[in-house]
């Protein structure tokens, strides 16, 4: 699949490959993501969609190919050449994450979970918590700031994860099956919240999902098979 032409791409991946020993996870995937765009990546299990997401989000380095992140107000960065420390810094400052299991810390309250990325970038805790609170409120979690993650429903926990992904002002948010563990009604609510908090605010969203209904809510959908992007569908 060729890269998607767009006037202002924040993320451009070209011929990305990744193998785990003898298993080829990515076999030359190329794509681009524009500022404010929501992009869904679909495919069967083992098609390479999560590995692609991890490469795009600087969680793992690709074996070959190029991934270039260009966000306003900062120098473009080539992800493929970054070492572990640099990738960590990039994730801290430019990426937000929402995963199926949330990857929220059960030891922390909802507010503290959202404030944590700001603390990691050096903000004092009171300031980080002050900045985090409005995000929780805007996602319908007012009054639940002090609850532990285990005291929230699945949908509420995902909203906390969405708030956490937004709090640093990350220009790109990556979501891996964000509605995978939710019923259809809650799933729809979470997607509303996710789209409001990302493309609704001019940020880009890259989302991996099995759910066609979830993908249909995004601007564009890429289908993967055997580590390659084989089809693209643009929402009307």
């Amino acid at each position: 699949m060729d890269t998607h032409d767009s006037p202002a791409p924040v993320l451009v991946a070209t011929d990305v490959t990744k193998a785990y020993e003898s298993t080829i996870a990515l076999a030359g995937a190329s794509l681009s993501v524009s500022a404010g765009e929501s992009l869904a990546i679909m495919g069967a299990s083992g098609s390479g969609k999560t590995t692609l997401l991890h490469c795009l989000a600087a969680v793992i380095p690709p074996d070959s190919g190029s991934i270039r992140m260009s966000v306003p107000g900062a120098q473009p960065v080539e992800l493929a050449g970054l070492d572990e420390e640099a990738r960590s810094q990039l994730r801290r400052t430019r990426c937000g994450f929402v995963f199926q299991e949330g990857l929220l810390l059960p030891e922390l309250s909802a507010l503290e979970n959202v404030a944590l990325p700001l603390m990691l970038t050096g903000h004092p805790r009171p300031e980080a918590e002050r900045a985090a609170a409005p995000w929780l409120r805007s996602l319908g979690l007012a009054g639940m700031e002090d609850r532990r993650i285990g005291q929230l429903s699945g949908g509420q926990a995902q909203r906390v994860a969405i708030a956490r992904a937004q709090v640093t002002g990350a220009p790109v948010v990556f979501a891996d099956e964000p509605t995978g563990a939710l019923d259809s009604a809650t799933s729809s609510d979470v997607m509303d919240a996710l789209l409001y908090a990302t493309s609704g605010q001019g940020r880009s969203l890259v989302l991996v999902t099995h759910d066609a209904a979830v993908a249909a809510r995004c601007d564009r959908t890429l289908h993967m098979r055997d580590g390659r992007i084989v089809r693209e569908k643009v929402a009307r």
Partner: peptide, 16 residues
């Protein structure tokens, strides 16, 4: 393990 992965995703430096 889950905590380590969660913090790594957030970009927590190894030293922290």
């Amino acid at each position: 393990a889950e905590l380590i992965i969660a913090l790594d995703r957030l970009g927590m430096p190894v030293s922290t």
